[in-house]
Simulated scan of single mutants.
Amino acid sequence: MPMEKKSYTFDEIKQKMVNYCVYQDRCHAEVEQKMRDFLLIPEAKDEIFLYLMKENYLNEERFTRSYIRGKFYIKQWGRNKIRMNLKQKGINEKLISNSMDEIYEEDYEKTLAKLYQNYFSTQKGLKDYQKKSKTIRHLMSKGYEYDVILEVFNNQDIQS
């Protein structure tokens, strides 16, 4: 038997959207997607959107800054991967660029150096140049920039 969708009043939906935004910072696209579940008329959607923004439950800049911090400091993603994922969420380039200052350059280089060391040291049975190219590919897949990776490589070679 197909399950019936429970219908909610406008105020209940509005409260559900507030709770959704309070639980964790959201971008407009995520809120838009969530509202599709409720089959609202466009005017009701607009009213809820305006309310969420006016009451500061929905703030694209706060979301972007929080997302950048989380993905870098917790998941250790590089700037390229973070930028690409934010673009997929519909965040504009200017906001992304202005928010990248959430990642301190010193932390970025330290994290990259640590990731380099950890990955490079796990490569067994390969020649040094193979380890190096495999490590570069790994770091690029995590979103780090090629020139920054090379800089770290050169610094590591000097210290070795």
Rank of each mutant, 00 (worst) to 15 (best):
M1F: 15
P2K: 14
E4G: 10
K5M: 05
Y8S: 05
Y8M: 08
T9L: 08
E12Q: 15
E12P: 05
I13P: 05
I13G: 03
I13M: 03
Q15W: 06
K16R: 10
M17L: 08
N19M: 00
N19E: 04
Y23V: 11
Y23K: 11
Y23C: 02
Q24P: 03
Q24E: 12
R26M: 08
H28L: 13
H28V: 14
H28P: 06
A29G: 09
A29C: 08
V31Q: 02
M35C: 12
M35I: 07
M35H: 03
R36N: 13
R36I: 11
D37P: 01
F38C: 09
L40R: 08
E47P: 06
I48M: 06
I48Y: 03
L50R: 15
Y51E: 07
Y51F: 15
K54Q: 15
E55V: 10
N56Y: 13
N56S: 14
Y57M: 11
L58Y: 10
N59H: 12
N59K: 10
E60Y: 02
E61I: 10
E61P: 04
Y67W: 09
I68E: 02
G70F: 05
G70H: 04
I74P: 00
K75T: 00
K75C: 01
Q76R: 02
Q76W: 00
W77T: 01
W77Y: 10
R79K: 06
N80Q: 04
K81C: 03
I82S: 02
R83N: 09
R83S: 11
N85F: 07
Q88H: 01
K89N: 13
G90T: 10
E93N: 06
K94S: 07
L95A: 01
L95W: 00
I96E: 01
I96C: 01
I96N: 01
S97F: 01
S99V: 03
S99P: 04
S99I: 04
D101E: 05
E102D: 02
D107N: 06
D107T: 06
Y108H: 04
Y108Q: 02
L112K: 00
Y116K: 00
Y116R: 00
N118F: 13
N118M: 09
Y119Q: 06
F120I: 12
S121D: 15
T122A: 07
K124V: 15
G125P: 04
L126E: 10
L126V: 14
Q130D: 14
S133N: 14
K134M: 08
K134I: 12
T135R: 09
I136D: 06
R137Q: 14
R137E: 15
H138Y: 15
H138K: 15
H138S: 12
H138T: 09
L139M: 12
M140Y: 07
M140L: 15
K142F: 13
G143E: 07
G143R: 07
Y144E: 13
Y146A: 12
Y146M: 11
D147R: 13
V148G: 01
E151G: 12
N154Y: 15
Q156Y: 10
Q159D: 15
S160R: 09
